[in-house]
Design a binder for these strands. Sequence first.
RNA 1: GCCGCGGUGGCGGAAUUGGUAGACGCGCGAGACUUAAAAUCUCGUGAUAGUAAUGUCAUGUGGGUUCGAUUCCCACCCGCGGCACCA
Length: 856
Amino acid sequence: MYDQKKVEEKWQQIWEANQLFQQSEGGDNHKNGGAVGDNIYLLFAFAYPSGNGLHVGHVESKTALDILARYYRMKGKNVFFPVGWDAFGLPAENYAIETGVHPSKTTVSAIDTFRRQIKRIGISYDWANEIATSHPEYYKWTQWLFLQMYSKGLAYQKDGKVNWCPSCQTVLANEQVVEGLCERCDTQIEQKDMRQWYYQITKYQDELISGLDEVNWPNATKAQQLNWIGKKTGINITYKVEGVNKPGGADEITCFTTRPDTNFGATFIVIAPEHELATKIASGEIRSKVFDYLDKASKKTELDRQQEGKKKSGVFTGLYAINDLTAKKMPIWISDFVLGGFGTGAVVGVPGHDVRDFEFADYINKLDKTGDQRIEVIRVVVGQDGDESEITKVAQVQEEQGLMINSDFLNGMSIHDATKKIMDYMEEKGWGKRVTSYRLRDWLISRQRYWGTPIPVVYDPEGNPHPVEQSYLPWKLPTDVDFKPTGESPLKSSQEFAERTRKYAVEVYADLITKKGWDVSGEGWRPEFDTMDTFVDSSWYFLRYTDSRNPDVFAKTEQIEKWLPVDLYMIGPEHIVLHLLYSRFFTKFLRDEGYFNFSEPFVKMRHQGMILGPDNKKMSKSKGNVISPDEIIEKFGADTLRVYEMFMGPLESDKPWDTRAVVGIYKFLQKVHRLVAELESEDVLGEAKVELQRKLHQTIKKVSDDIPKLKFNTAIAFMMEFVNLWQNVMIKENKTLSIKDKIAFIGVLAPFAPFLADELFEIISKKMSSETIYSGIHQTSWPAFSQELAKDDLINIPIQINGKVRAQLEVESDKVGDEKAIFNMIEGIESIKKYIDGHEIKKKIYIKGKIISLVV
RNA sequence: GCCGCGGUGGCGGAAUUGGUAGACGCGCGAGACUUAAAAUCUCGUGAUAGUAAUGUCAUGUGGGUUCGAUUCCCACCCGCGGCACCA
């Protein structure tokens, strides 16, 4: 029995005292001396330091990267393994609202807790380059980045609809709105028009797609990013508008469609309530109806829309557009099933071949008593069912595939061929133009919140924005702020902030003030009260790490290019879309600004799965199924916790916690300690020892192969097999490994159970010499394996007859290549005679070293 | 509805350029040591028939390709995640 708690605390102190993994600023590693070009950057997703401290999910992903870091260091690489905190954000602010404790205080204490816990589980982070986004020396550069974006026109202001929580009295990000409700208080979210700051991520939309080809990421992640960007090719068709009341300028309307092939069946047009023509084109009696509808539509919440389901509604504008293909008049309707933000905000209705169009037409036709507004349903495609009859039911609406009919020169073509042909035709006629449409929108970065990076902008007395001069950065977050939510940005309550702005204006804009005749004390100037979305902070932290204390630049090119792109990024699946997209956008922007030469920041990226509660459900306080890492460490030690989490299953998949199974790992580590430290025996040469040595070399090989593939569970399983054999040989034959081989095994174990490994290494070292200077296992080289020693003498080859295994053939490993000899050997095997005697062997197959297959 | 991921013993999981399905761990059963317990160790453990040798069945379901399929193809079923009135 070894006291893992005592042992682990001892080694934690020794590592700390020796600054074992600490690197100098900028991540120079003097400890391992790897060659240039052997630089490896391992990145753990920026964590928010929550007051709850570390949970078992953190332990999993941090341990996985730590194993890689320790492994590569032992392989002689320069490893950069930094740590930092995504310290701005809503939770700290909300906590402050509840308790009155300033966010800067709670953040500092939360970080302290995390730091202590992380050190306790032995993560070999480089603490010399630790950063926090709430530190002025960090957000100075977040603000600088804003200025760069601004100067290139990529940061801009625009009016737009935002999510508003009437209970929290604040704007929320899209991701904080869950099914139309505020994620914190379950209040219905309203839409509000506000002037906000945006980053123009859409400038890079095509590159954000094509760049995915360069990176080694899970397919699922790439698919989700593509989904989010939502690139679609189609055509904008422009129709002439024939008005009952001809409005000024509204004599054309442009609709986006991906299915122009069905345009011979187009019988109406629908525009979104937000469409600019919606308010312009109607007049008279119709006008009031339109306004009534627009008013109702604008009041609808997300929830209303959801509850309505797909029920259609709409109002007629009194206008008609002309379908050039058929010369038919198409009534123009307004309906909220058409979205203002997608395509052109106008849709051409083909009720025969689009379910939504059909539902809308059906709704209108049932409502229409006079027949004046009847919408015609025309079939232009015949699907696989061969149905050519009139379309009267939703079930008949054919969308996916088929052949064209009732479509003049398209008749008989497949819909795909017809799509190309009609596009060419329309472009030729000048009726339409091929376009690409995207789902991705520009990134709204303003937040009416306190605990974030202030947007470095001031407004002059006329309300014009002026970016804060670079020399005035960091444009500090004021501290004299009342952060109770009032519906206004908390920074408005700061006296200091207002005064600072006036003083700044007087200093910087003296000429302008004089010229305009404004108040010379700076009266009338005000700062931007909004702060930035925390995703802005976390979109470039991986660059700052490389030069974390540089006061003159966000990071030197030399330092960035030394370490980036990141060799492995470990990140939770919850940030697949936004954070990764934003980081890639920043990277491409800074590349264009000439700061470095690569385009993708994360060459390889993997997700850790979720660790579920013992009940197979997501851990949560309310379910009472949360496992605390502290308890496990107290009972079994950090090594056990590490190895258990790595052994649970594949890193990427979700896995339930099994408290009973933890014991298995604990016993395994105790067994290793016993074999090395407690049991005495002689090193005797003999048969068993050869077998054990072979297994050792196979273990080194297996673990060396598995670590870079992140297959830690199978690596551990093989180490267990080795230890079981070792124990067996020890008990039955009183034989053990040589000192050298013991050290080799400890080396293999070291990345997984670093405390125990160093302890065992010390025990062995002390037996050999009385040296007192620390020189631990983590400073040694990764054990080498010998291909020769790892090779099995005998190989078992199964023999199949008609596809079933009937016997085994044991062959000396150097004879597996001799097919003729193998087949000769088979004939002598008693157990397969009964299957082949009296039969003609029709086929003989031998796959070298793997299988013999006979067909009789 | 669309996109993606997955389905293997009582449980977590191993095994894929197609080659002995169930490594390793948990749990369970039997035994050794012990006055006893704990700890430790040994053996067994997919189902089914049989005293046994051995046979049959078995990787969500149904087909197919192959000497051979958890792995490849086709059609379905179920679970999870994301998006969704996106034209």
